[in-house]
Amino acid sequence: MGRDSVTLGCLPEEELPVNIDKANAALDSVYTADTPETLARAYAAWAATYDDETASLGYLLPFLITAWVTRHVPVGEGPLLDAGCGTGLSGPSLKALGYSDIAGLDLSDDMLKIAGSRNAYSELKQAMLGGPLPWPDGHFRAFFSTGVFTISHAPAAGLHELVRITKKGGHAIFTVRDQVFESGGFQAVFDELEQAAKWRAVEASPWFRCYAIAEPDALVKTFVFEVM
């Protein structure tokens, strides 16, 4: 997601939606979380209004990631893992495109309850990226993840475990926020996995905006790797 403070330069102050102020406060709480427990509490507090408030910012990623999934994963090949699924915004879009076997993973039980109400996920599990994940080696055809490798969230090292649970010939599809790509050591982890013959690069997008409406300087890049 975006920076600590969201701005809308194209609208006069009196026309700014009320949700923008609420989104700013919620973003402050998740981007300043200094422990997994603090982050989980922040998302628990945000869960009920997360969809409305991120929509007011024009948050693109949960919907745009489906373009990369459909490009690399044929319908009928599964299961897929939505890693850091939050309230499950990606699931219904993929279900509408014919993907029927999607698992969701998130650190927040409150977010997972909302994801479950969408009837798009075959299973939902609570766990934190960066620690052990509750699936066997090579379980998934692909994993996809948006807005998770960002400020004060999942570490780059979490990619090792995600690759472990993805089968050979499967795909890793995920976004990384510009502000953490270098400081978070993502390139080093990319290189480690490549040198260990665990994956190979397939494509990387240009840096692009997280939001259609707010914060034009908040950028992410989508990466796609084939697991080996």
Rank of each mutant, 00 (worst) to 15 (best):
W68C: 07
G58A: 12
L124C: 10
H171T: 06
P206M: 10
T150S: 00
F223A: 08
N119W: 10
K113S: 14
P155W: 00
E192M: 04
L80V: 02
L129E: 05
E53Y: 03
R200P: 12
L159T: 01
T38Y: 12
N24V: 06
I114G: 08
A156S: 05
A204P: 11
L89T: 00
K167D: 12
I114P: 07
D51S: 06
Y59L: 00
K167A: 12
S29F: 14
A218C: 13
M1L: 09
M1K: 03
A196R: 07
D4A: 07
A67K: 10
V18G: 14
A214R: 00
E123W: 15
A48F: 09
P155R: 01
L60Y: 02
S29W: 14
I213T: 07
K95A: 12
E14G: 14
F174H: 05
K113E: 15
P79G: 02
M111W: 09
A45F: 09
A197Q: 15
A25C: 13
G88Y: 04
F140T: 02
T35L: 02
L64C: 12
I173M: 11
T175Y: 00
A188F: 15
L80G: 03
D51M: 04
A44V: 05
D34S: 15
Y31N: 09
G78S: 08
L97S: 10
A42R: 02
M128L: 13
S108R: 03
E15V: 11
W207M: 04
G98R: 06
G130I: 01
K113P: 12
A214L: 08
D51A: 08
G76N: 00
V30D: 00
A218N: 07
L105W: 10
S29D: 14
I102N: 03
Y43K: 08
Y43T: 01
K198L: 12
T87Q: 08
V163W: 08
I165K: 04
G104K: 06
E192L: 05
D106N: 08
G170T: 00
G9C: 13
M228S: 15
F186T: 09
D217T: 05
S90A: 14
E13G: 09
